[in-house]
Nucleic acid binder design. Structure first.
Lengths: 214, 214
DNA sequence: GGCGATATCAGGGTTTTCCCTTAGGAATGT
DNA sequence: ACATTCCTAAGGGAAAACCCTGATATCGCC
């Protein structure tokens, strides 16, 4: 019987080793490789051709979404499941757009992760139950399961404002910089945060780093 | 033979389960309890009286440093090893002050963690090799060592507050995180900005990046 | 022509930050 | 014993951010 070949891409070595134990104790799965950064993940995926890549979103050199995109380009038969501690739907949208087939929170139970691997191996899409919640109330939730990129994209102006917010500029400074009124800055900021499901300035900073805006 | 009794305090369930496997496969250790937040960690420590608590610093309800302090107060015989993904020295100082006997990065190898547990169980102190570096070469010490003329060095608390400011946290969030009043946060922030001649939040973000606090 | 998305701005009320000063207790140093 | 630093905290007033609603103009598009 062929076991599912899994590649672990995760920079926290202790977590990675633990994951390896958890997966190897499953009857029909085995870990065939490990990577501690995005570029290594991509190269290993190309070389080992695993069935599934378990990909941490936050990694050095190349983040999880970018690595996913590269892998999906070069090895379309390799499926990617994103693993993350972030609950904000912005990350979910990002990795799904990059071509991931699954999204599991680190806070989730093991069974969810195993479920996700099984489902994705069969060609399905798996979204963590907690994250699914966030999308149930979205008018676009149908698309998620059809694998279509969803979530409203930010406009250019919104990206501009949000990255300045992440850089620590005050609304007034941003307004001067862009030659618009403070009120307009407030509007762009609020709208974009709402689109991305970001609830605080700290989450904006985190997201901006993830996107490489900084 | 008595095994070392370990309590796992970690909110990421997948990591926690993996850690459990890693520790239980050691001959002289066993996991006797688990907690997914700081308050539960404290209560479990009181109840189970483990030899060692493996404590994630970032946890809901009560952060790792506070939980460590509480545990050390009520059960001085229980040793705490902090587990974290943060390399920033501010955290190291904080948890050591709270009474932790060890500090291990999630990026570290398992052997380091096992080493740390053994060492601490024998009454020693273990600081992760990568973090030991950071302790000697902290921004604070650098200034002292190189005798940089420009201005007074920041205190630990000031570094801590300022790096949280740079991460986008509001004064209120920082106050909660550190369990001090908003007024105190304002004071630390103002004092440290004055010391460094930083005039805006954006400059703080910039400086923090320069210092590698992010 | 109307529909949707984008970009702009405002009013008004609440909360938070910012900036100034002051100050006490603990630890450390001379 | 005295000085200094650190951490803590507060008061008070001005400024800014936050949160809500509503409004106008443009542009592409079916």
């Amino acid at each position: 019987m062929d076991k599912l070949k899994i590649l672990l891409a995760e920079d926290h070595r202790i977590l990675r080793e633990g994951l390896k134990r958890l997966i190897d104790e499953q009857l029909n799965m085995e870990v065939v490789g490990e990577a501690d950064n995005g570029i290594a993940a991509w190269q290993q995926a190309k070389e080992l051709e695993p069935d599934i890549v378990l990909m941490d979103i936050t990694m050095p050199r190349l983040n999880g979404a970018e690595a996913t995109e590269k892998i999906r380009e070069l090895c379309p038969q390799v499926k990617v499941i994103a693993l993350t501690g972030h609950r904000a739907s912005a990350y979910l949208n990002e990795v799904l757009k990059a071509g991931a087939s699954g999204y599991v929170l680190k806070q989730a139970a093991i069974d969810e992760l195993i479920d996700a691997i099984q489902t994705v191996a069969k060609g399905g899409t798996y979204i963590d139950s907690a994250s699914r919640e966030a999308l149930v109330h979205s008018p676009l939730d149908d698309r998620v399961f059809k694998g279509e990129p969803q979530g409203k994209p930010l406009s250019q102006r919104e990206v501009q404002v949000l990255s300045l917010v992440a850089s620590g500029y005050t609304n007034k400074e941003i307004a001067n910089e862009l030659s618009i009124s403070v009120k307009t800055v407030e509007t762009h900021k609020a709208n974009s945060m709402q689109k991305l499901d970001l609830k605080s300035r700290a989450e904006v900073v985190d997201y901006a780093r993830f996107r490489g805006w900084t």
